[in-house]
Amino acid sequence: MLITLAPDYSPSEDEEFMNPMQVEFFRQKLLRWRHDLLMEANGTLASLSEGGILEPDITDRASVETDRALELRTRDRARKLIGKIDQALARIENGTYGYCEETGEPIGLKRLMARPIATLSIEAQERHERQERIQRDD
Protein backbone atom coordinates (compact mmCIF):
# COMPACT_ATOMS: atom_id res chain seq x y z
CA MET A 1 0.00 0.00 0.00
CA LEU A 2 1.50 3.32 -1.13
CA ILE A 3 1.10 6.16 1.35
CA THR A 4 1.86 9.75 0.47
CA LEU A 5 2.76 11.99 3.38
CA ALA A 6 2.15 15.70 3.48
CA PRO A 7 5.50 17.55 3.48
CA ASP A 8 4.77 18.95 6.94
CA TYR A 9 3.48 15.69 8.46
CA SER A 10 4.83 14.81 11.87
CA PRO A 11 3.62 11.92 14.06
CA SER A 12 1.37 12.94 16.91
CA GLU A 13 0.44 11.36 20.23
CA ASP A 14 -3.20 11.97 19.24
CA GLU A 15 -2.98 9.34 16.49
CA GLU A 16 -3.11 5.58 16.83
CA PHE A 17 0.44 4.39 17.54
CA MET A 18 2.22 3.06 14.44
CA ASN A 19 -0.67 3.75 12.10
CA PRO A 20 0.25 3.56 8.39
CA MET A 21 1.15 7.28 8.27
CA GLN A 22 3.55 6.99 11.20
CA VAL A 23 5.11 3.83 9.80
CA GLU A 24 5.69 5.55 6.45
CA PHE A 25 7.09 8.63 8.20
CA PHE A 26 9.68 6.55 10.05
CA ARG A 27 10.45 4.44 6.96
CA GLN A 28 11.23 7.60 5.00
CA LYS A 29 13.23 9.06 7.90
CA LEU A 30 15.35 5.90 8.12
CA LEU A 31 15.86 5.75 4.35
CA ARG A 32 17.00 9.41 4.24
CA TRP A 33 19.38 8.83 7.16
CA ARG A 34 20.82 5.74 5.46
CA HIS A 35 21.22 7.63 2.17
CA ASP A 36 23.03 10.51 3.92
CA LEU A 37 25.42 8.12 5.66
CA LEU A 38 26.20 6.33 2.39
CA MET A 39 26.85 9.64 0.63
CA GLU A 40 29.27 10.67 3.39
CA ALA A 41 31.01 7.29 3.14
CA ASN A 42 31.40 7.70 -0.62
CA GLY A 43 32.94 11.12 -0.05
CA THR A 44 35.38 9.62 2.42
CA LEU A 45 36.36 6.88 -0.02
CA ALA A 46 36.92 9.44 -2.75
CA SER A 47 39.14 11.60 -0.54
CA LEU A 48 41.15 8.63 0.73
CA SER A 49 41.71 7.29 -2.77
CA GLU A 50 43.17 10.60 -3.98
CA GLY A 51 46.61 9.37 -3.13
CA GLY A 52 49.25 9.40 -0.47
CA ILE A 53 50.11 12.08 2.02
CA LEU A 54 52.17 14.72 0.24
CA GLU A 55 52.98 16.91 3.23
CA PRO A 56 56.76 17.45 3.41
CA ASP A 57 56.69 18.54 7.06
CA ILE A 58 56.52 15.66 9.56
CA THR A 59 54.13 17.56 11.83
CA ASP A 60 51.76 18.29 8.95
CA ARG A 61 51.96 14.67 7.84
CA ALA A 62 51.14 13.47 11.35
CA SER A 63 48.18 15.81 11.47
CA VAL A 64 46.86 14.50 8.14
CA GLU A 65 47.32 10.90 9.30
CA THR A 66 45.45 11.65 12.54
CA ASP A 67 42.61 13.25 10.58
CA ARG A 68 42.40 10.19 8.30
CA ALA A 69 42.36 7.81 11.25
CA LEU A 70 39.55 9.79 12.86
CA GLU A 71 37.62 9.80 9.58
CA LEU A 72 38.01 6.03 9.27
CA ARG A 73 36.72 5.51 12.83
CA THR A 74 33.77 7.75 12.04
CA ARG A 75 33.04 5.74 8.88
CA ASP A 76 33.22 2.50 10.88
CA ARG A 77 30.61 3.87 13.29
CA ALA A 78 28.49 4.89 10.30
CA ARG A 79 28.81 1.38 8.86
CA LYS A 80 27.50 -0.09 12.10
CA LEU A 81 24.72 2.49 12.17
CA ILE A 82 23.69 1.56 8.62
CA GLY A 83 23.33 -2.03 9.83
CA LYS A 84 21.03 -0.86 12.62
CA ILE A 85 19.03 1.23 10.17
CA ASP A 86 18.64 -1.83 7.93
CA GLN A 87 17.40 -3.82 10.95
CA ALA A 88 14.87 -1.06 11.74
CA LEU A 89 13.66 -1.11 8.13
CA ALA A 90 13.24 -4.90 8.41
CA ARG A 91 11.17 -4.37 11.57
CA ILE A 92 8.98 -1.96 9.61
CA GLU A 93 8.48 -4.63 6.96
CA ASN A 94 7.55 -7.32 9.48
CA GLY A 95 5.31 -5.03 11.55
CA THR A 96 7.33 -4.95 14.77
CA TYR A 97 8.85 -1.47 14.40
CA GLY A 98 8.10 0.90 17.25
CA TYR A 99 7.53 -1.83 19.83
CA CYS A 100 9.96 -2.83 22.57
CA GLU A 101 11.77 -6.09 21.82
CA GLU A 102 11.75 -6.94 25.51
CA THR A 103 8.22 -6.04 26.62
CA GLY A 104 6.24 -5.65 23.40
CA GLU A 105 5.02 -2.25 24.61
CA PRO A 106 5.17 0.84 22.37
CA ILE A 107 8.57 2.53 22.49
CA GLY A 108 6.99 5.98 22.18
CA LEU A 109 7.07 8.65 19.50
CA LYS A 110 9.45 11.01 21.30
CA ARG A 111 12.06 8.28 21.69
CA LEU A 112 11.64 7.14 18.09
CA MET A 113 11.94 10.70 16.82
CA ALA A 114 15.19 11.11 18.76
CA ARG A 115 16.50 7.60 18.00
CA PRO A 116 14.62 5.96 15.11
CA ILE A 117 16.68 2.78 15.47
CA ALA A 118 15.62 2.23 19.11
CA THR A 119 14.58 -1.34 19.92
CA LEU A 120 13.81 -0.90 23.62
CA SER A 121 11.47 1.38 25.53
CA ILE A 122 13.13 3.87 27.86
CA GLU A 123 12.27 1.71 30.88
CA ALA A 124 13.68 -1.45 29.28
CA GLN A 125 16.80 0.42 28.14
CA GLU A 126 17.38 1.74 31.67
CA ARG A 127 16.99 -1.79 33.10
CA HIS A 128 19.43 -3.09 30.51
CA GLU A 129 21.98 -0.38 31.35
CA ARG A 130 21.63 -1.00 35.11
CA GLN A 131 22.21 -4.71 34.53
CA GLU A 132 25.33 -3.94 32.46
CA ARG A 133 26.70 -1.72 35.26
CA ILE A 134 26.08 -4.42 37.85
CA GLN A 135 27.83 -7.05 35.73
CA ARG A 136 30.72 -4.67 35.00
CA ASP A 137 31.15 -3.93 38.73
CA ASP A 138 31.37 -7.63 39.61
Rank of each mutant, 00 (worst) to 15 (best):
A124F: 00
H35S: 15
E13W: 07
A118R: 00
L5H: 09
L112A: 01
F17W: 11
R130P: 02
L38V: 15
D14I: 01
I53T: 06
E15L: 09
A46D: 04
K29P: 05
A78M: 12
T66G: 03
L72D: 07
P11H: 04
L81S: 13
Q87K: 10
R73Q: 15
Q28Y: 08
R75D: 15
D60N: 10
D76F: 08
Q28M: 12
K80I: 10
A46C: 04
R32Q: 10
M1E: 07
Q131H: 06
R27F: 01
E102G: 07
L31W: 08
F17K: 03
Q135E: 14
P20G: 05
E105Y: 02
L2C: 07
K110L: 10
L37I: 05
E15M: 11
A118E: 05
L2G: 08
I107N: 00
I82V: 15
R73C: 08
K29I: 03
R111T: 04
E105R: 15
E71M: 13
L70A: 11
F17R: 05
E123D: 13
R61I: 13
L109W: 02
S49P: 06
F25S: 00
K80T: 09
E16D: 11
Q135F: 11
F25G: 00
A41D: 15
H35R: 15
F17Q: 02
C100G: 06
A41H: 15
L70F: 15
L81A: 09
K110V: 14
M21R: 14
R79M: 10
R130Y: 00
E71D: 01
E13A: 10
A114G: 06
G104T: 11
A88Q: 00
E16Q: 14
N94C: 11
